[in-house]
């Protein structure tokens, strides 16, 4: 099994939104950043993977097994942090520990306890007394403490201050040190992804726009900044999208080196994921 997660042509239709042929593959031992606007389909895709929504078409395989047929077996090894979905807030971390003992075969109370200590979370306080950041840390601790092989995380660091985020990202990287574990990480905090993600999958309006290695996007792709006159000289085949701002043209190209060799334009910058997203979504062809 090369890929820990494989999605092929996932389709799901709602009244005013639809997933269309979403296809992606996450290899073992890798981190995939899942990016897109709010409402682009990240959460819907994640829900399909977990069978939280069920009436979808397409094939989803986890650990090489069909996610519908082997749902129970697969879920023993998946750790999940979802947006705004967790234990009832009148419960305490101790309650969570005792509950999970009876849910996962591999639940590790000691590991959970260690995380609580590391995150300074009091085991006997109700979740509703925790701040947003503390809740997220608790959710992450819960997801990790049954030794999963695949982490599916929907905005796991939202609401965390930079120091806490750095802590959590370190924990994710430790998780990946075992080369048979993977992470699917949906996040708006693209700076984190720019560092630790191996792959980036970008979804827009229910369709996958691109799915590439992060290195290719950051090393090869680039953003050309030029005047209108210079832009007019560029062959349409040599760029992906462009955007006209008040003072300049911004042009997304897939190979900085080739572009530089062909055109004599001074500014070809390294692109950030945020800029990539904005250009892909708001740019014209």
């Amino acid at each position: 099994m090369e890929n820990i997660l494989e999605i092929k042509n996932l389709c799901k239709t709602y009244d005013n939104f639809a997933l269309k042929n979403v296809t992606l593959s996450l290899p073992k031992g890798m981190i995939m950043g899942f990016i897109g606007e709010n409402g682009a389909g990240k959460t819907t895709t994640i829900k399909a993977i977990l069978n939280i929504i069920q009436s979808y078409r397409g094939e989803i395989k986890i650990f090489g097994l069909d996610n519908r047929k082997y749902d129970k077996k697969i879920k023993e090894d998946i750790g999940v942090v979802l947006d705004d979905m967790f234990f009832p807030e009148i419960l305490t971390p101790n309650d969570i520990d005792n509950t999970m003992k009876g849910i996962y075969k591999n639940w590790d109370s000691k590991m959970f306890d260690d995380y609580l200590k590391e995150f300074s979370l009091l085991p006997n306080k109700q979740i509703k007394t925790f701040s947003k950041g503390m809740r997220k840390k608790l959710e992450i601790a819960t997801a990790l403490s049954h030794h999963p092989k695949l982490l599916i995380l929907d905005e796991p660091t939202s609401g965390l201050d930079p120091v806490a985020r750095a802590e959590i990202i370190q924990i994710f990287q430790s998780f990946i040190e075992k080369d048979d574990c993977s992470i699917l990480l949906s996040s708006h905090i693209t700076t984190d992804l720019e560092h630790i993600a191996d792959y980036i999958t970008f979804i827009n309006r229910g369709e996958i726009v691109l799915s590439k290695t992060k290195d290719e996007l950051l090393d090869k792709y680039g953003i050309v900044k030029c005047t209108e006159a210079e832009f007019k000289k560029i062959n349409k085949k040599d760029y992906i999208k462009y955007r006209k701002t008040k003072y300049e043209y911004e042009v997304l190209v897939s190979n900085k080196k080739d572009f530089k060799a062909k055109y004599d334009i001074a500014i070809i910058d390294k692109i950030t994921l945020d800029e990539l997203m904005v250009l892909m979504i708001k740019g014209e062809e």
């Binding site: 829900k47 977990l50 069978n51 939280i52 749902d71 129970k72 077996k73 879920k75 023993e76 998946i78 999940v80 979802l82 705004d84 979905m85 967790f86 234990f87 009832p88 807030e89 009148i90 849910i103 996962y104």
Partner: peptide, 24 residues
Amino acid sequence: STFSYDNYNNWDAYSISFPDGRKN
């Protein structure tokens, strides 16, 4: 009343991510 609390925190959806979540 536990149904109300569950609903407020979207527990049902979260619990589906557990093995045999729906059935249990």
